[in-house]
């Protein structure tokens, strides 16, 4: 083979990426791992191994509560995002002419490419004390003074998170529904299956990898969410991400590192839980 001559040259393209990701991704993440197991003495990090940073985190009830609240918010937001995105993706695939599908999909993805900060910020105009909801309630005389329930609490955080991550879910679900062979669905119904049965037995097993991908892509970034709880969550809506930032801005690097590692651990747990459904090969598509 003539290509063998370029054995080294073949890999040369990786060199810059290797430098960038070695020095500024792998190394710093490893340092954070190490920090989480190191001690602080006289405001200096010393290289002595300990699990005190983790012990400290779990000894403060507020931190533990915040961690579980983060998991809970992530689960709820992910479930809601999928629940909103699934009927939408189904509608797009089944009831929209092919020509229009792409355009309508781009409209959904477009916000994802605009500023993350601004997408959170834009909700302040709606949820805020003088935002759209409160103005509407006052105008209709439901309340006479602004209600802050819509801001500075967990429901507001969940709402904004669903808004932020909807494009991910819509895109992945669309992709898997679009590939699905709908004749199989029709065949099941012709053989007497009710729509719900056909959906459960034929559709869901085949689009499961798509749903898993959507779950992973929505759940993981939410675990490290900082801005949404910061801007619309207030003190009652804080998540682990806010704790981490507080640790680091207070120069408690080792404790912050331990809290960061907890997020990483949660991500690993998630990937292990979903490993099986990721591995399953599409059982009906093997012939194609």
């Amino acid at each position: 083979m003539g290509a063998r001559r370029f054995a080294v040259g073949e890999y040369l393209g990786f060199a810059p990426a290797l430098i960038l990701y070695g020095a500024f991704f792998a190394v710093p993440l490893s340092i954070v791992v190490a920090y989480s197991f190191w001690k602080v003495r006289d405001y200096n990090v010393v290289h002595e191994w300990t699990i005190d940073n983790y012990r400290y985190f779990f000894s403060v009830p507020t931190y533990v509560r915040t961690m579980w609240a983060t998991v809970w918010v992530a689960v709820l937001s992910t479930a809601l995002t999928i629940a909103v995105a699934f009927p939408f993706a189904y509608w797009l695939v089944r009831h929209v002419p092919r020509r229009l599908q792409r355009t309508l999909l781009v409209l959904v993805i477009l916000p994802f490419w605009t500023s993350y900060l601004l997408r959170v910020y834009s909700w302040l105009n709606i949820l805020g004390p003088s935002g759209a909801i409160n103005r509407f309630l006052q105008w209709t005389h439901v309340t006479s003074s602004p209600v802050s329930f819509f801001l500075y609490d967990r429901p507001a955080v969940v709402l904004v998170l669903v808004y932020l991550y909807f494009p991910f879910a819509a895109l992945t679900l669309y992709a898997s529904l679009e590939r699905f062979d709908w004749d199989q669905f029709k065949a099941a119904m012709d053989l007497g299956a009710r729509p719900a049965t056909a959906m459960r037995k034929i559709l869901l097993p085949q689009i499961r990898p798509g749903i898993t991908t959507a779950v992973i892509f929505v759940f993981i970034p939410i675990l490290g969410e900082y801005l949404a709880p910061q801007l619309v969550g207030g003190t009652r809506g804080i998540m682990i991400g806010n704790l981490i930032v507080n640790f680091f801005s207070g120069a408690e690097y080792t404790r912050g590192a331990a809290a960061s590692l907890l997020i990483a651990a949660l991500i690993v747990v998630l990937l292990v839980v979903f490993r099986r459904s990721l591995e399953i090969k599409d059982p009906y598509a093997s012939g194609r």
Partner: peptide, 16 residues
């Protein structure tokens, strides 16, 4: 780097 929270990239580089 796309998937993991940007927060982790930010703080790990800050430490580095």
């Amino acid at each position: 780097p796309i998937m993991i929270p940007g927060l982790l990239i930010g703080i790990s580089l800050l430490v580095l």
